[in-house]
């Protein structure tokens, strides 16, 4: 667990803090997304965890220990670090890049090469093909994958990721996000993830910390709760006017109580679809209801626009109390 306790940062010569009295907890095995407009102090907050920046006030605890208990360099070797521009070392092979921290920790050679192979497989790069290549020979998306593998190399319990998928095109970004969520499902790291993109925050975060200018924590909650009930004007405008739809995108058809299987000629909806896509599908087909099917084409039931409407409205009301 990572705990921010009244953390502030004011740069010398400036009167306004960039991070202002930040207190929240990041739970084990969760992705906590720090999101907000530029100048909200999200990257600064993240960089104080591994002490690339030292706070002016307050403290950060990792598993109950203040992060000042050991030297900065030693601390950083036990925290994964991945950044937007990736920062791969251009003069080192992919294998050597990934092995950076294990080498610093003086693992033996066999263990390092086994780990490199394991990680390349994990991020979907064939070790035989990529181990001895250099960063310049890889595409942007492949470099991002290596960046993530390098951050995971010494199996750190905690990872910091600063817009790690920011430097690739939208299609690749979605693929990398999906892949990373799959990987996180296996490795269950405690992750602080910085982005300026609310959609990425909603998709990646178990919990989202929305920061506003001046480094003030506006709201800290699960994506569902933030979308259902933004606690301020700032948060509601930051998440956007389409927050109802965004919330629907968090729910899958299979999460909903379906009507009984009924009739023929209804458009088919996969039970793995999210509700936003299902709604779009129904509106597009100009019908009120669709037939929900499993991967194996077994009919599960029917889903109506009315159900979706009731669901989002109900949640709004429940939250509004």
């Amino acid at each position: 667990m990572i705990e921010f306790r009244g953390v502030s940062k004011t740069y010398p010569g400036s009167s306004r803090p960039v991070v202002n009295d930040l207190s929240f907890e990041v739970f084990d095995g969760e992705i906590c997304v720090l999101v907000g407009p530029s100048g909200c102090g999200k990257t600064t907050s993240m960089r104080m965890v591994n002490r690339l920046i030292e706070p002016s006030a307050g403290e950060i605890l990792i598993d109950g220990e203040p992060n000042t208990a050991m030297s900065g360099t030693k601390l950083r070797r036990h925290i994964g670090y991945a950044i937007q521009q990736i920062g791969l070392f251009p003069h080192r092979t992919i294998a050597d890049n990934i092995a950076t921290v294990p080498q610093l920790l003086e693992w033996d050679k066999g263990r390092i090469s086994a780990r490199v192979e394991e990680l390349l497989n994990l991020v979907g790069l064939d070790p035989d093909q990529y181990r001895d290549r250099y960063p310049a020979e890889l595409s942007g998306g492949q470099q991002q994958r290596v960046g993530v593998a390098r951050a995971l190399a010494a199996d750190p319990p905690v990872m910091l990721m600063d817009e790690p998928f920011g430097a690739v095109d939208p299609i690749n970004r979605h693929r990398l996000q999906d892949e990373f969520l799959r990987i996180q499902g296996e490795i269950k790291k405690t992750i602080i993830f910085v982005t300026h993109d609310i959609d990425e925050a909603i998709k990646m975060g178990d919990r989202i910390a929305i920061l506003q200018e001046g480094g003030i924590l506006a709201q800290y909650d699960t994506p569902e709760n933030i979308l259902a009930s933004p606690n301020s004007e700032f948060v509601s405008s930051f998440v956007g006017a389409d927050r109802v739809l965004k919330r629907l995108s968090l729910l899958r058809v299979s999460d909903v109580e379906l009507g009984p299987p009924n009739g023929d000629g209804l458009p088919r909806l996969s039970e793995r679809m999210n509700l936003k896509d299902a709604l779009s599908e129904l509106i597009g087909a100009g019908v009120e209801r669709g037939s929900v099917v499993s991967d194996k084409d077994a009919v599960r039931g029917t889903l109506s626009i009315e159900t979706i409407q009731r669901l989002s409205h109900g949640a709004e009301q429940a939250r509004g109390e």
């Binding site: 591994n50 690339l52 950083r76 036990h78 670090y81 950044i83 990736i86 920062g87 921290v101």
Partner: peptide, 17 residues
């Protein structure tokens, strides 16, 4: 590149390294 240096620092390389 400053990003390369930032990545190195973030992974725990000392100034000498």
């Amino acid at each position: 590149s400053p990003q390369v240096i930032d990545a190195a620092r973030g992974m725990g390389l000392s100034d000498g390294q």
